[in-house]
Computed example of a mutant assay.
Amino acid sequence: MTLSPGAPVPPISTPLIATDLDRTMIFSKAAMGPEQFAALDLCCVEIHEDAPLSYMTSEAVDLLGTLAASAPVVPVTTRTPKQYKRIALPGSPFRHAVVSSGGRIITDGTDDKAWRRHIDTQLSGAGADLDTVVAELRSRIDQSWVKKLRIADDLFCYLVVRTERQPAGFLADWTGWCAPRGWTVSQQGRKIYAQPATVTKSAALAEVRNRLIDDGTLTAGAPVLAAGDGLLDADMLEAADRGIRPAHGELHELGFAREHVRVTESSGALAGEEILAWFHAAMPAAGAA
């Protein structure tokens, strides 16, 4: 059932906490908006090219640090390993992280090559290859509205666009081309991603959960609690025992609603605080109290 904002959370065994990062847990100034950026007490958690890029509220920093000391927290992100390692998250280093939208698992700071081999095998013959998709994408864009086209981790591609100039029908047309060829399209702010549909955050997270059960960190019945804001997080939220999404972002615009997925009351960086408070409320000690 969907919990009301003040409803108590039933006690459970120690859960696995899985959270998307950008626009769910960490926020750029643009993602927050100038008013929220000016009003909140913020901590910088990412510097890129000698400039601050991503932030959390000071309350969110405290909450995530405390949470990471009580339960296994797994960052689950579309970022590549290099992009992920730029972030200094409270509670880190995390034992496991899912990056490249599930294309890679980082364990104790090291890329899990066996998982990537599994992904590469899975992709063989499963729809259009990356070169075909990139060639088609190039034929559909121009510099009047696209700032960059990037290939990420030899796995997927994305555009950085000027949203105010983006053609109205581009996203629908591009999705229509990609879907029957086994690719998923997602727009998150200024970035438009295309990735193989067989590569998912949920599959990589399930692998991490199995490993944590095998080594005794989690019990066999340990639930997964997940948070995310974008279409590429939908499969993770669907597979989770319970989930939460912010009242902003791609899933919010799509009206994504599931019985076991709560929606925050706040948006922007305050939604990140609310998500972390929700995770805390789901911990066994909080449920018992």
Results as ranks from 00 to 15, higher is better:
1 M>Q: 10
1 M>F: 12
2 T>P: 14
4 S>F: 06
6 G>P: 04
6 G>M: 12
11 P>D: 09
16 L>W: 07
16 L>S: 05
18 A>D: 04
19 T>L: 13
22 D>M: 10
23 R>F: 10
24 T>S: 09
33 G>A: 10
41 D>E: 10
41 D>G: 01
42 L>N: 06
46 E>S: 06
51 A>Q: 14
55 Y>L: 04
57 T>N: 05
58 S>R: 15
59 E>H: 13
65 G>R: 01
66 T>D: 15
67 L>H: 00
69 A>D: 10
70 S>D: 12
71 A>E: 04
71 A>Y: 02
73 V>T: 00
82 K>F: 07
82 K>H: 13
83 Q>A: 15
84 Y>P: 01
84 Y>V: 06
84 Y>D: 02
85 K>D: 15
88 A>T: 13
89 L>D: 02
90 P>V: 09
91 G>Q: 02
91 G>M: 04
93 P>M: 01
94 F>Q: 05
95 R>K: 11
95 R>W: 02
96 H>P: 08
104 R>C: 15
107 T>K: 11
107 T>M: 07
110 T>M: 15
122 Q>E: 14
123 L>H: 03
124 S>R: 13
126 A>P: 10
127 G>I: 10
130 L>A: 13
133 V>L: 14
136 E>L: 07
139 S>G: 05
139 S>Y: 01
145 W>E: 03
147 K>Q: 13
149 L>A: 00
153 D>Y: 12
154 D>A: 10
154 D>N: 13
157 C>N: 03
157 C>H: 08
158 Y>M: 09
162 R>P: 05
162 R>H: 11
162 R>Q: 14
165 R>N: 14
169 G>M: 06
169 G>H: 09
170 F>A: 08
176 G>F: 08
178 C>V: 00
181 R>M: 05
186 S>N: 12
193 Y>A: 05
196 P>N: 02
198 T>L: 11
199 V>W: 00
199 V>I: 05
201 K>E: 04
202 S>H: 09
203 A>I: 07
204 A>W: 03
205 L>P: 00
209 R>C: 09
211 R>T: 05
211 R>N: 00
212 L>G: 01
219 T>G: 13
221 G>F: 05
227 A>N: 09
228 G>K: 01
230 G>H: 06
230 G>Y: 06
234 A>E: 13
237 L>T: 09
237 L>G: 02
238 E>I: 14
246 P>C: 08
247 A>K: 13
251 L>V: 13
251 L>R: 11
251 L>H: 07
253 E>I: 11
255 G>T: 00
257 A>N: 12
262 R>I: 07
266 S>R: 15
270 L>G: 03
270 L>S: 11
272 G>P: 10
276 L>G: 04
278 W>Q: 05
279 F>Y: 08
284 P>N: 09
285 A>F: 11
285 A>I: 08
287 G>Q: 04
288 A>I: 13
